[in-house]
């Protein structure tokens, strides 16, 4: 078991949450809260603690003086509510190239779980590679020690059995919470159509794609000469004679892919968080600060 840094980030759900469990995100249900949501008649909403005398008198005067059918107005508030933070973790082998054997992913899981549960939200985890990884999944929970459990789960996960990231769609299907923020941590080195499909499926959630960028060397190991390489996922051997024209073609293929990826995100009004190396709480806090509040 590794000791994890108790890094955390602050976030707010950008939309109003409807839910009866009090939490920290602005909600659309009425209850105890700090956001004023209009008046109601005392008989409709029998909460005498919130009778607003000034408002009641002003209302009665406006209606033509004090009379027998005077109404007492009660102030109502929107109740703050909770959401669920889902982490869809890419466990495929290509991730371990830049991810130091999923250590960084485990750190991220720890941080999300710690921040979510600390704020009273639920945390859930779904791992995927070519399939949904049931062994690396946690259903929504508020259990306090879940951050460590999640991190250990990711760290000690068995390696992917088959290449590919198609399990992303299955994993997205697991998300059942009505309000959720979905962290999608992957290197996005897969078919754009899978991502497109997933994003469409997750369109009513807030998706935060964490794009783990590989080092340039992991994409383009050599600039000249004979280069033999092995695909991190499939293990296929490739070999090319590198020269400037090849480098150009290679680079343009890479650029094209990531161009497509960002247009895909743009279409869904999602801003990706580009990361190389460790994800810090600070980065995520900045990300959420920049997020448009509804």
């Amino acid at each position: 078991m590794t000791a994890f840094k108790h890094d955390e980030f602050s976030y707010r759900y950008p939309h109003n949450v409807y839910g009866h469990v009090p939490g920290s995100h602005s909600g659309s249900s009425l209850g105890t809260g700090d956001r004023f949501a209009g008046f109601a008649d005392l008989f409709d909403y029998p909460d005498p603690r919130r009778i607003d005398i000034r408002a009641s008198v002003r209302n009665n005067m406006a209606n033509g003086g004090i009379s027998a059918n005077d109404r007492w107005l009660v102030r109502r508030f929107q109740q703050r509510s909770t959401v669920t933070l889902w982490l869809l973790a890419d466990m495929s082998k290509s991730m371990s190239v830049s991810n130091v054997n999923h250590q960084r992913l485990a750190n991220l899981a720890h941080m999300i779980a710690h921040s979510a549960i600390g704020l009273g939200d639920k945390f859930a985890l779904a791992g995927f590679d070519s399939h949904w990884r049931q062994d690396i999944s946690i259903m929504p929970t508020r259990q306090r020690n879940m951050s460590t459990i999640a991190a250990d789960l990711i760290e000690q996960a068995a390696p992917a059995s088959a290449p590919g990231s198609e399990g992303l769609i299955e994993a997205a299907n697991m998300i059942s919470s009505p309000h959720a923020m979905v962290f999608l941590a992957s290197d996005f080195c897969c078919d754009i159509s899978i991502i497109e499909k997933t994003l469409r499926k997750l369109s009513h959630y807030t998706v935060i794609p964490i794009v783990w960028q590989h080092d340039d060397v992991d994409h383009l190991p050599s600039h000249a000469g004979w280069t033999e390489m092995r695909d991190a996922e499939t293990g296929q051997h490739h070999a090319v004679w590198m020269r400037p024209t090849m480098k150009k073609r290679w680079q343009s293929a890479m650029d094209e892919h990531f161009e497509k990826l960002s247009t895909c995100f743009m279409r869904h009004r999602i801003r990706p968080l580009l990361v190389d190396g460790e994800v810090t709480g600070e980065q995520l806090t900045h990300y959420f600060m920049g997020m448009k509040k509804s």
């Binding site: 390489m229 991190a232 293929a253």
Partner: peptide, 14 residues
């Protein structure tokens, strides 16, 4: 295959 380097995604290899 001793000179081999692991790359993230071979789909980029032309």
């Amino acid at each position: 295959h001793s000179q081999e380097k692991t790359i993230a995604w071979s789909a980029f290899v032309p």
